[in-house]
Design a protein around this nucleic acid. Structure first.
Lengths: 358, 358
DNA sequence: GTCAAGCGATAATACGTATTACCATGGGCC
DNA sequence: GGCCCATGGTAATACGTATTATCGCTTGAC
């Protein structure tokens, strides 16, 4: 015999109370057995029995409304989290976020809806406003909307960025990789291999992470009293020509794609990598080594690079956010963390060629 | 000059109303501009301005308490979504879920918190109760808690399972792979290669998916008037001995792990795969071919198997759930879908050995 | 001038829970 | 007997939102 299925009905404390012949408040008291409030054993028994019979489950809405937090951490990404074809950028970050959120007893709200709703234009329903659903939010993405970031800071919504971010509106909490130090370390590595003309090839769009790599490079140049040669990747063949003209023997390149393109150009000109030109990649955009979800390597090259601790970064961001939510920080203070990146020796950097020049 | 930042206080409609010099109801009306209710343009303007100034965001708890949906789809998984070391099981499913959720304008709530809270043992705080935050829920996981499933059905909470599920409490909406048909098809494939003694090696724990594979196998056996030989993987070496004793030339095995184990045993006994023993895997547990996040193949074997359309399954589940939420179905009806799985020819199945027997 | 109607806004209420203030009963003590 | 206190329970309220009933004002029609 099928129930006369109708509108989904939830069992409330009031119904349980009616069944047990007590007041709603009594049910709540039994459920939360607050210290200091006594309930007669016999009554408690009746309530517990009624709870069992009805299969009551607490409605968190009501509870949260009563002033408790809802234990939800928002995750906002500027691109799709689970891409269909492209590289897996977010996986490791989210792995760390999930792990730590679970440990801290939070649920994760993935914001997938905003920015797309056409139809009825609801004034305050799109964009970052929806973030407010969560107690706090983790943001990540290669691309950042400056205006939005400023606004977030301004609204004092608790959030932590993954990747260093600066806002004119005030300090921002973030967990980043220490690209400057890692870039400098990579410079030292090639220096130790007798390279004396080391160039930087950065991403053509300016961002914090690009700036960090450059600052690490500049620092290393200064230390060794070398004139920096910092190029950007807007025009690959121009970059390559410049490298040749300047007799560069080692290039530190921001992404794997650039590195591969550069190598192709080199090979086309009869130069071998790494024998004639060493190439270091400034961060493992190909997360094969470190990721929980390894990529099938687009190229199977074993680049010399440094490892970005993505999983740790995600976990750390959650810890910081939870700290903020628990009020364990002075509200104005922001936590800014740069995690070290471990050097990975690959096959694309070797000793400098014995120079015919000078 | 630093603001005297204090405890972040959620902005409520009441505060907005006070600022705009109207009533809370007016703010709600402006936000939801319900048809049929008029608001003076000048007043609306004032409210909109106040909303902007305060950065108001709706409180989903309050709204849902009032009985409205909040455009959130819950995702409940029985294991961690982003595993650290193991295989990537959920990725493709979630890819489809995210894609479709975005298309439909829903956010995704990943339930990561439940089931772990030790501390104060709150009687009814764990398990499915938290699901109620979302409008509806997608559930997935290799392991299923029967009692919980029954209870969910009982509560009439709108949900869709990924993978066929049956409950004694009533019909369940699901999107599964048609393992029965795919298994039968794989049987036909080896039959066409002259195999006449084909065994099934299933998972030792009984579940819907294991049962489906068996039923497809049994159907195929019946069709060819062969006596079935269905084993389970509890004791690998016993399975292998049985295969030898029964002079099996082709084994259809439920998981890649079992298949690999079986092959190891075979090799150890001087049998070659596939020359002496063909092995088909009933579903690509290794999602390399289909996943957005390819695994580094644990073994680089190119198994003969069938492809589970994980991404499609995720997307389809969301569509069904959204349909339920929009009330496009009679409440009692459940949607049950089995998607076809495409055969993948690998290197582990070949023609039957020319039998020395009979 | 009166009445109806239309417009624009508000007061009131419901949703489910947690908590505080309060009340009734009865026993012990002086 | 009057008072206090402990015990065990309930009534009332707040939380934030959406919606319905209501109310006051203006205006048009007669």
């Amino acid at each position: 015999m099928r129930h006369v299925t109708q509108r989904r009905k939830r069992v409330t404390q009031a119904e349980v109370a009616r069944l047990a012949g007590v007041s709603q408040a009594m049910v709540s008291l039994v459920l939360n057995d607050s210290d200091g409030v006594r309930v007669a054993p016999e009554t408690r028994q009746r309530v517990v029995e009624a709870l069992r019979q009805t299969g009551y489950t607490v409605d968190i809405m009501g509870r949260r409304l009563r002033g408790k937090s809802n234990q939800i951490i928002g995750v906002f990404t500027y691109e799709a989290v689970f891409p269909s074809g492209s590289a897996d950028f977010y996986g490791p970050f989210l792995g760390g976020i999930e792990e730590e959120a679970e440990a801290q007893g939070f649920d994760l709200l993935l914001f997938t809806s905003p920015g797309r709703r056409q139809g009825r234009r609801k004034v305050y329903e799109q964009g970052s406003n929806r973030l407010g659903i969560a107690d706090g939010c983790i943001l990540l993405g290669r691309h950042t909307d400056r205006a939005e970031l400023d606004r977030l800071v301004d609204e004092r919504f608790p959030f932590v960025f993954i990747g260093r971010r600066e806002s004119s509106a005030g300090p921002v909490s973030y967990v980043g990789g220490d690209y400057a130090a890692a870039t400098a370390a990579l410079y030292e590595r090639v220096w130790a291999l007798d390279h004396r003309r080391v160039a930087l090839v950065g991403y053509h769009e300016e961002s914090e992470s690009t700036a960090d790599r450059r600052s690490g490079y500049l620092r290393a140049c200064k230390r060794h009293r070398k004139t920096p040669l910092a190029l950007n990747d807007a025009d690959p063949s121009a970059v390559f020509e410049r490298l040749r003209a300047e007799e560069v023997t080692a290039a530190l390149v921001e992404t794997t794609e650039m590195a591969a393109a550069l190598r192709a150009l080199a090979t086309g000109s009869g130069l071998r990598v790494p024998e004639d030109l060493s190439v270091g990649v400034l961060g493992d955009t190909d997360p094969t080594q470190t990721s929980a979800w390894p990529l099938r390597p687009a190229s199977d090259t074993d680049w010399t690079t440094f490892r970005i601790p993505r999983r740790d970064m995600g976990a750390r961001a959650v810890r910081i956010l939870v700290g903020m939510l628990r009020g364990e920080m002075e509200p104005g203070r922001k936590t800014q963390v740069l995690l070290p990146c471990e050097l990975v020796d690959g096959t694309t950097v070797t000793e400098a060629p014995r120079a015919p020049r000078r």
